[in-house]
């Protein structure tokens, strides 16, 4: 543990609170018969796609492509995940298979 247990509780409760506010916000803002502004509904159509793209990059933020293992285990695993998912469209298989493959790669191949 990097944080003390009090710090951990605070961190988790802050995350929980912000998440709840985000989920409840539209119900609070657009109560009654107020209609949703067109710009907001446009964002609703495009933002979820952009956000997931952002999160994929976020996950790879600590991968170095110029040193260490050059991001090869990550690249191989992602390609396999894409392949598995195109093949079976099974979330469990793709996520589980990709993770286990990555663990094997970093534990036995790219040490």
């Amino acid at each position: 543990m990097t944080q003390t247990w009090v710090q951990s509780v605070i961190t988790l409760l802050v995350i929980a609170a912000v998440t709840f506010v985000l989920r409840a916000l539209p119900f609070m803002l657009f109560r009654g018969n107020k209609s949703v502004p067109p710009f907001i509904s446009y964002l609703g159509k495009v933002l979820p796609f952009a956000v997931i793209g952002m999160l994929v990059v976020y996950c790879l933020k600590d991968v170095s492509f110029i040193s260490g293992t050059y991001g090869i285990p990550e690249l191989i695993s992602i390609l396999v995940i894409v392949g598995l998912h195109k093949w079976k469209h099974n979330l469990l298989l793709s996520v589980g298979g990709g993770t286990i493959l990555y663990m094997l790669l970093v534990q036995f191949v790219f040490i």
């Binding site: 543990m1 990097t2 944080q3 003390t4 710090q7 951990s8 605070i10 961190t11 988790l12 802050v14 995350i15 912000v18 998440t19 985000l22 989920r23 409840a24 916000l25 539209p26 119900f27 657009f30 949703v36 907001i40 509904s41 964002l43 609703g44 933002l47 979820p48 956000v51 997931i52 952002m54 999160l55 976020y58």
Partner: peptide, 29 residues
């Protein structure tokens, strides 16, 4: 949790990851 305690960072990350939920709510009003 694996990094030093930083509330500001926790708030920013939660906003970034969960902002999409605002738009879920919009379609369920």
């Amino acid at each position: 949790l694996n990094k030093p305690f930083n509330i500001f960072n926790a708030i920013i990350m939660t906003l970034a990851v969960n902002i999409r939920h605002v738009f879920y709510g919009l379609s369920l009003i």
